[in-house]
């Protein structure tokens, strides 16, 4: 449920490091807590995001949650597919349900994130 090759934030985002870039999505735990995702609001390519700050929102029928950037940098790609089919976030949170790709301005920020074990621990403790 929490792939070992990803880094995790306390706000329930994951990031997959791909060179100087990071692919970002929400975790299995986050999608399960939200329930059926009905809408996702994402930034545009070219927008700057800052670690720990909101870059968009994700909505279920009866709730809405902010999405927080795990690292700072420029948004270089946005998953158009997930905007049209938000159910991908529920079905495949670590695959086709990814949200954005960030060109990291400070890869050192990755050190502030958790590995899969630490994240799983955090989720268990609630």
């Amino acid at each position: 449920m929490y792939p070992a090759d990803l880094k995790y934030s306390k706000d329930h985002e994951w990031i997959r490091v791909e060179g100087n870039r990071g692919r970002v999505g929400i975790t299995h735990y986050a999608q399960e807590t939200l329930g059926d995702v009905v809408y996702v609001d994402l930034p545009r390519a070219g927008d700057m995001v800052k670690a720990g700050e909101s870059f968009g929102t994700v909505e279920s029928v009866k709730s809405v949650s902010d999405l927080y950037a795990p690292v700072s940098g420029e948004v270089v790609e946005v998953n158009r597919e997930v905007m049209d089919h938000p159910d991908l976030i529920n079905k495949d949170p670590y695959g086709s349900g990814w949200l954005i790709i960030i060109e990291m301005s400070d890869p050192g920020e990755l050190d502030n994130l958790m590995d899969a074990l630490a994240y799983e621990e955090m989720v268990k403790e609630g």
């Binding site: 059926d36 009905v38 809408y39 909505e59 279920s60 029928v61 938000p86 159910d87």
Partner: peptide, 9 residues
Amino acid sequence: RLDEVAAAR
């Protein structure tokens, strides 16, 4: 019961 998820998507 109505499908509120479909209505919102």
